[in-house]
Each structure stands twice: as C-alpha cells, then as structure tokens.
Nucleic acid binder design. Structure first.
Lengths: 355, 355
DNA sequence: ATGCTTAATTTTATCGATTCCAAACTAGCA
DNA sequence: TGCTAGTTTGGAATCGATAAAATTAAGCAT
C-alpha cells in the first residue's frame, strides 16, 4: 500500500489547473473563485495532501525550527525546560533542535555553528560555565537571528531573558537557615562569572547582612565546571570541613552541587543536619525521600521553557525587529525539609515565595 | 557587520564560473580540473561558504533528521536515551526532532504524522502504554521510512530492536529477594500488553519457579498508564497492603512506579525493608541517598540511545533495504542496597550482570 | 588540414511551493 | 458597439543545490 505524498503539481495535473492556482486555492488567496477553491481543497483533503515543509522553507527562508543550546539533557532542570519549550513550539508548528554543550565553551561554539547551518529561525540559549567569548553569539544576533536567554544569561546581547528568581530564592533559603539558628553558613556555587552565580550570591549576602553576619570569603567555594565533575564538589566540601572554623550549614547553589555535596556528606558519615545542615537548588525528583529529606529550592523549569519559547516565537514572527526587551523573573519554591532543621526544633512546612 | 551566508551562485558569479562547476568543485567531482577546484575551494573557504541544507534536502529528498518518539523528556531514562542518540546523530550530521507522547496513543499518532511532514529520514520509537493500533506505523514503514524500536518494542514491524536485558534483570532481582529470605514477592508493573511488561514478568516467574514458589495472580498489579498518574501506583500498593496475606517484598517494574511506590510506603510510614522490602527498575539519580538506600536495576539508557541511533543511521544510509534485523539486548546493572535486605543480615554489594 | 577522442565547462532541468506579471474572460456603461 | 474595470487563471521566475545533457576546447593521429 504505497502512499507517496502528493504535491501541488500532482493536484494541478489531476484537476487541470495550473500549480499557481492550486497553491493559491489552498492558501485561501483572495483572487480565487469559491468554486475552484472548493474543488481543489476537496481533492487535497481526499488525497491527504500536506505541503512539503522543506520546499516551503527554501522559498520562505524560514525553517520553522528553533535551536536549543544547553548543557545537558539528562539533568532534570534542563529536561523540564526542554519539555516546556516543546509544548509551545509544537503548537506553533516549530520543531526544536537540541544541542548539549556539556559545559564546554568549545563544544558550545561548534553547536552554535551547527544550528546556524541548520538555518534555525531563532535560538534559546543557556550559556556554559566556561563561556567567556560572546562574539560569535553577538555576530549571529547582529545577523538578525533572534535569541532568548534563560537561566545562565548575559547582558552582552540586548534581548529577552527568562530566569528564576535567584536573588529571592537564595535570600529566602539563607534567611531560613539563619532563622533556624545556623550562623556559619557556607555556600558552594557554580563558576564565578556567571549570571546565576552573581544573583545567588546577592541573595545570600543580603540575608547575612540583615542578620549582621559578615560574609567570609573562605565560606564561598566556586566550582569552575558547575559541578560537571564530582571531584570539584567533593574538594569544595572537604575544604570547608578542613577549615579551622568549619561551617554548620551548606547552601548549595546548583542541582548537581546539591546532590554531589549531599552524597559526599553521606560518604563521610557526617550527620545531617546535626553536624552539617544542607539545603540548596535542586530540581531532581523526590528529595523528600532522601535521608534525611532534603530542603530544596525548586525552579519552575517547565515554565521557564514555555516562557522562553513564547518570547522567542513572538520575536521570530514579529514584522519589525524588537527594540525593547524584558527580563522575566519567575518565582521559585522553597520546600523546607529535615536536612536544614535542627533536630530539637522539628519543623516541616511548605512556603511559596513570589518576587 | 552583516555577514549573510553566501551561495554557490554567489561564488560562481564572483569567479566567473557556472554554478554547476562550483558545485562539482566543492564536492570533489572527478570531472573538474585541479586548478579550478583549488580556486573555488579557496574562495569558498575564505568567504565561509556552507551549503544550504534546506536546498540540499529538497534536491536529495533527505532531510538529515531523525524523529524521536518517546513518552516524556523529563524522565531520566528517556533523557539519557536522548543524550545517547544525540551523541551519535551529531557526529553523523543528523539532527533529532523530539516528540513526547505522554503515554497517550492519540498524541503519539499526531506526533508521528508531524514527524512525517517534517520528512524525517528515520524514526526511533518507544511506544506509549496505550498504543494498540500499529497500522499507522506499519504504513509509514511500508512507505520506506526506516524505524528502530527501543525499550517498548513491537514485533508487528520487522525491524531492529534495542532493549535492556529485561528478563535477566527481573530474574536476578527476584532471585536476590528470594535469596534474602523473602517469599511473598509482589510485582507492580506497567500496562499488561507491552513488551517490557511481558519480559519483566518472564524473569520474575522464572525466579519464582526456580524456588518452587507458585506465582499468585493477586501479587501482580498492572498500571495501565505506566505510572503516569500517581494514583494508579498508590492504588496498586494499597491493594497489595489490603490483601489477606500481604506481600513482604515489592518488585517495581518501572522508574516511575519504583519512585511512586517507595514514596507511598514512606507516606504510610511502612518500615522498609522490615515491613516491606522494595526494589525495582530505576534510572533516577542517586537512589543511594534515599531512606533507606534503594536497591535498583539501572538500564544502560545512554547506550540504548547510541545503539538505536547507530542502527537507524545504518538503515538510512544503506543502498538497498535491509532484510535481516537484530534485537540488541544490553546488560543491566543490579545494585543491591538497604531497601531489599533484611536488617539482621546486612549486605551491600554491587553486581554487574551480563546476558 | 581533417576527423576523432578526451577533458573541462556550461546549459538546462529538477526538487515543491510561492509569487510577480500577464492574459483571458465577464460585466457594466456610455 | 466599444471601452474600462474587475475577476479569475496561467506562465514563468525564484529559492539553492545538483545532475543529466550539451557544448567547447584541446590534443593527437591520419
């Protein structure tokens, strides 16, 4: 039961019209008689005609595809972002092309090139921890390819940004630890010069300042590779443990770092939260099942993906180039569990924090 | 610094050649003089020429893209599969188009249609739990689109299959429970008529039989939606708990079911493993951090993705249609942790099982 | 000088859809 | 009857790359 797709010229031949008439009829052009339109459409329907998207792309110079540049697919945060992007893109007739940088700037550049060859109509980008040189992305943007940043954003390019409320989230988490009686709160975070690192630092400092606690430089550990390699996380925790005055609580500022540090404390048989409390950003599933259950900040990853896709598609489809851009800041959720609450004062509550 | 991509005819005009000469020179055709070839290539290199893939697609009727049909991206197993597929596809010049069925047969059919309009060169498919009607897929296959199945496969179409060693894995896990002294082992598994369900049942029955233990029908709970909705998992566990003779161990036959059942036991304050042992398939990260640490079967998801992509690309690029197909069965890893070991006999070991 | 072979390049058609331009036909009106 | 305006359709070019067919140029033997 061969069923080769039929083309406009097949229809034209069959009905004895010219292909331009058929094309116009199918697209409801104003200059086609009602009768012709009906005949053509009926035939197309009956023979299951669908336009050849490749040919349309060539003609229109639009590929109806969106390039996604992110670190890693098997990472709950990014997987949910992808799902969010897909949900919007699918309904608007776009498909998405996913590339992974694995936190390598070089791989990121290659992926970018690849996506441009694929002639994507726009890009949704979360920068790698290594990225320093923004010139390639700037050039692409200058050439008219719309870009929307999410999560790890950059101000080097004037465009939309979609992020979680990083400042608010880390402020609230740090405050929660302070209110719980912890005073020596260390932070393990991503590479030093990323947007999310700055923002998460800001909230952390703000909460400390409010409690009159001076921020100690040796209480902040940066993971240059964002926790891609487990060693850098373990080294960071170990450094903190080895301090003359080790911290009593850890604020871990990314998914991988949270899990890695938690696992390392386990391995070292350090009692949580008695010897060391721990809480941090984490979109991994089921932190409530951990031992002890883990206090986390959960980012609205699906929403971030949806929002980024909506903004990008609007950019792509708008007649004239946009001139004003927005930074969408989405609320996070702090879920307090056992890992950050001293045993003598059991507490278990869920707070939803909006910016 | 506008930098519009240049085309073959741009080069042709600039160098005073015809476009076919340029095309052939770039493709190292035999009938082009060495001198011309060098001039053209130098110019192309200098002006950063890259062929327009859309035009190539239209001409060659190859899109250099692979359609991926799976349940859900934010699911560690599938996310790792995607990553594996991407790693191979990227190096072979293919890009992947991902669609999610969310376990809905109707959505699956729509996605399939969408992928065909996109004129993908081949499909990598894991069926939804709902899928009954294979006719659409069969028709697509009959029309010459190569397909490779993974995980949830079907024999309705004669093609390659890539799966984990489901029989071996569930045999080994059941045997482990039996050797640990458990005798009333229930299974919570996916929809009844899926390949993976059959295979996982087979291993479970085989181990029971070896120990002379009759399989009880009321000890097998099927989740029609594969655990998509948490209620069906909770209902299944509750039914087992409500039995006159409730089981003493649970074998959970999919990622979501494992996590869902574990969480439900937690919620019901059932002591694991004293009151109820639990162990099952799970590709989620860090089950060793759970309370108690969770015995799991981990599937080689990344490898499954890689293998499926390799087989598919071979099918796509082979001159004549393949006539013989293989079923690749990849080894799983059983990691025994506390959730399946009675307290009085502590044990902690890692076994790697090959088929 | 003529014919024949081979090498190098150009011309032209093609993939499928779209669109500019022109042609054909129908009404309406002086 | 003739002319204009409006409606409907066909022809041809286009997007960029490719390939079959045609052309040109050069080399060599008779």
């Amino acid at each position: 039961m061969k069923n080769e797709p039929i083309t406009i010229s097949d229809i034209a031949k069959a009905l004895n019209f010219s292909s331009s008439t058929v094309s116009r009829a199918l697209r409801d052009s104003y200059q086609i008689s009602e009768a012709t339109r009906r005949i053509v459409k009926a035939y197309a329907e009956k023979h299951n005609y669908h336009p050849n998207l490749v040919a349309q792309s060539l003609k229109s110079n639009k590929s109806k595809s969106i390039g996604l540049l992110l670190c890693s697919v098997p990472n709950n945060f990014f997987a949910e972002v992808i799902s969010g992007v897909e949900s919007i893109a699918y309904n608007s007739g776009y498909h998405i092309i996913i590339t992974q940088s694995h936190e390598s700037a070089e791989r990121e550049a290659r992926n970018l090139e690849h996506l441009i060859w694929r002639s994507v109509d726009g890009l949704i980008v979360s920068l790698s921890t290594e990225t320093k040189d923004m010139s390639k992305l700037q050039q692409i943007h200058a050439n008219g390819v719309p870009i929307v940043f999410f999560d790890r954003v950059s101000d080097c390019i004037d465009t939309h940004q979609v992020v979680a409320d990083n400042i608010g989230a880390s402020y609230n988490l740090t405050k929660h630890l302070l209110e719980g009686g912890f005073r020596k709160i260390a932070q393990i975070t991503s590479a030093e010069d990323m947007s999310i690192t700055h923002e998460r630092n800001e909230g952390y400092f703000k909460a400390l300042a409010e409690f009159g606690i001076p921020a100690r430089e040796d209480y902040i550990q940066y993971c240059r590779h964002g926790g891609m390699m487990i060693e850098e996380i373990e080294t960071s925790v170990q450094k903190l443990l080895d301090l003359k005055e080790p911290p009593d609580a850890l604020f871990t500022a990314s998914d991988r770092i949270t899990i890695g540090a938690f696992a390392f404390l386990h391995k070292k048989k350090i009692r949580i939260p008695d010897q060391m409390a721990i809480a941090g950003f984490c979109n991994f599933s089921s932190p409530e099942l951990f031992n002890p259950s883990l206090t986390t900040i959960c980012q609205p990853a699906f929403e971030i993906g949806k929002t980024a896709a909506e903004l990008l598609i609007k950019l792509i489809e708008s007649k004239r180039p946009a001139t004003s851009f927005e930074k969408r800041i989405l609320p996070t959720e702090l879920i307090i569990r056992d890992s950050s609450v001293k045993k003598n004062k059991p507490l278990r509550l869920v707070t939803k924090l909006n910016k």
